[in-house]
């Protein structure tokens, strides 16, 4: 067993690429659920919007990287929010839940369909669209940085990721202390009350869906840039729940909650991942019980189990108290 690798990987989970992707996605969910009470179970589609917005702009449409950013961060998520929000935001909360999860499935089917291969690259997705991003990389590709955790290109992704994440945190922190945030919280508590006081609840919910969706798109876009590929299986329905676990772990309706949650989540996931792989590779676990691919499935089981246990025992998150916003309020 290589304990050094296990420790290094766990630490990498705390601050590395997946932490950034899912912090951003969970910041979006926090906007949706934590502050507005919207049940978005399709954050993965917003992430996909970011990834595919960029990659389709560059690969399929032949536009430059900057147009890709616009498409991925603004245009695609806004359209998506409209499509999912217009029919459901006037209705009870579970309708949005159903439609968002249905949208995830639609994305999966469409993105993998060979008949649209020309546009989406079907199951293999699109690759090599972020060269412009790496052209600006000031780090040496061959060297390792940050206690040897990241090689040059990774360091560049992670550094920009941290910066974007800080900006997003600042935006959430500012807006949630403003009257705008107050209206969102009021809608979360009781939409009819907000409407009776002259607040256009529908429109505020739509804004929340859009802005949280854009945060999610940023997360998805980083995921695509980090691997230089946008593939359907990186944005399947279940991916949404990684962000949900991060959100509930850290505590909903806390500005830093999603970040703490994502760090802890990826610390744990990376630990179990590497730990199990080492067990398998070193023959502590026989092939008949578990092989290399199945290790990847274990992480989804952990996510499911995490959701169950958190929702039942720690709905307010691991740092929260009972009085604050918690999952089981409504």
């Amino acid at each position: 067993m290589d304990w050094g690798a296990i420790i290094q990987n766990s630490f990498r989970g705390f601050i590395g690429e997946p932490f950034i992707y899912f912090s951003l996605a969970a910041m979006g969910l926090n906007m949706h659920y934590g502050y507005t009470g919207l049940l978005n179970f399709g954050q993965a589609v917003f992430m996909a919007a970011g990834a595919y917005g960029l990659s389709m702009a560059v690969v399929t449409l032949g536009l430059n990287f900057w147009w890709g950013l616009l498409l991925g961060i603004v245009v695609f998520p806004l359209l998506l929010a409209l499509i999912m929000g217009v029919p459901t935001l006037r209705l009870r909360a579970d309708y949005l839940a159903i439609v968002t999860i249905a949208a995830s499935e639609m994305f999966r089917i469409i993105a993998r369909s060979p008949s649209l291969d020309r546009w989406t690259g079907s199951s293999d997705g699109l690759t090599a669209f972020a060269n412009t991003f790496y052209d600006f990389n000031p780090f040496d590709k061959q060297k390792r940085y940050f206690f040897g955790l990241f090689i040059g290109n990774q360091m560049w992704v992670v550094l920009i990721g941290w910066i974007v994440l800080s900006i997003v945190v600042l935006i959430v922190w500012m807006t949630m202390r403003s009257p705008w945030g107050r209206v969102l919280r009021a809608i979360r508590e009781d939409e009819d009350a907000a409407r009776s006081l002259g607040k256009n609840a529908y429109w505020f919910k739509m804004q929340s869906l859009m802005i949280g969706g854009m945060f999610g798109a940023l997360g998805g876009m980083f995921r695509a840039i980090g691997t230089q590929s946008a593939q359907p299986q990186n944005f399947i329905t279940d991916v949404t729940f990684f962000a949900w676990v991060a959100l509930i772990l850290g505590g909903a309706a806390k500005v830093g909650g999603p970040i703490a949650g994502a760090a802890i989540l990826y610390g744990i996931l990376n630990f179990t991942d590497v730990f199990l792989r080492q067990l398998v590779e070193n023959g502590y676990v026989p092939e008949s019980v578990m092989d290399g691919t199945q290790v990847g499935q274990v992480r989804f089981m952990l996510i499911g189990l995490g959701l169950i246990l958190l929702a039942i025992y720690r709905p307010q998150g691991i740092f929260g108290t009972k009085e604050e916003m918690a999952l089981d309020d409504r």
Partner: peptide, 23 residues
């Protein structure tokens, strides 16, 4: 328990069972 908590628990079970079956 609130309905949202229940909803999330049911999703948790959905994912968990699904991947146990895959496994």
């Amino acid at each position: 328990a609130s309905l949202v908590a229940a909803l999330v628990v049911s999703i948790g079970f959905s994912i968990f069972f699904r991947y146990v079956i895959l496994f």
